[in-house]
Design a protein around this nucleic acid. Structure first.
Lengths: 119, 119
DNA sequence: GCTTTATACATAATATTCTTATGTATAAAA
DNA sequence: TTTTATACATAAGAATATTATGTATAAAGC
């Protein structure tokens, strides 16, 4: 039996933008802190996005025109919501398709089929 | 229709060691140049490992004790063969299992199922 | 015979993307 | 009132890739 607590950081590398964009595709608007918790919740803590990785990524997505931001005050505390732009919606599709294709290739290359996959 | 010429470099990041180790698992011994061509051949040029990435990776695997090397002269030209160690055989299993698990999680997270995967 | 292409290794400068650490500040819970 | 949770941000450093460069032999094309 293979037990996986948390994935090594190398694996997550390169997929963070895709994860964030895809969440925004399904959730209209989200803020950073919410994103990290949603991913932890959805993956049973297997993928834990650090703040040092997330915030620069969100800023890069905004700079690239894939998301827009909106500041909301909860009392005196600021919360920064992110929302997909029309261009962002195109980017998500491209990235998710590319990742799906890549994973298919990797499954072939490493000879991984459904029966050998572990829970 | 989604057409993929070659994967963006971010995706391959973090999977190179796993790819190399897995090839050595199936092929007894291989040399660097052979590995790059084998991967290109098996992926229809979708994954093209650069020499600048491969050789440092092979050296790191040797340093880590996962592979041993053997120099062979083809005429006057040197060729450096790599072979898995016993420890390397353990490392391959761990890495492939982890990657399989990670991809399964990503497929769930991004809502990718077989029917939506593209060729 | 000469030039190009293929084989085969290696490293250095640079870029990207992450981790870890640190900083700031408010709000809720113990 | 101290700790934990919420919520943002950036800087130093590590890891891993790209791009460029270097060396050298062998085969193929012209």
């Amino acid at each position: 039996m293979y037990i996986c607590i948390m994935y090594s950081s190398e694996l997550i590398k390169g997929t963070l933008k895709t994860i964030v964009l895809n969440l925004l595709k399904d959730n209209d608007k989200m803020y950073g802190y919410e994103i990290t918790h949603k991913v932890r919740e959805m993956t049973g803590d297997k993928i834990q996005i650090t703040e040092g990785a997330l915030y620069p990524t969100l800023h890069a997505l905004e700079k690239h025109g894939d998301v827009t931001t909106e500041k909301v005050y909860i009392g005196k505390r600021v919360r920064k919501y992110y929302r997909l732009t029309d261009q962002g919606k195109v980017t998500v599709k491209e990235r998710v398709n590319e990742l799906a294709d890549f994973m298919k290739t990797m499954r072939f290359l490493l000879d991984i089929d459904s029966s050998t996959q572990h829970a």
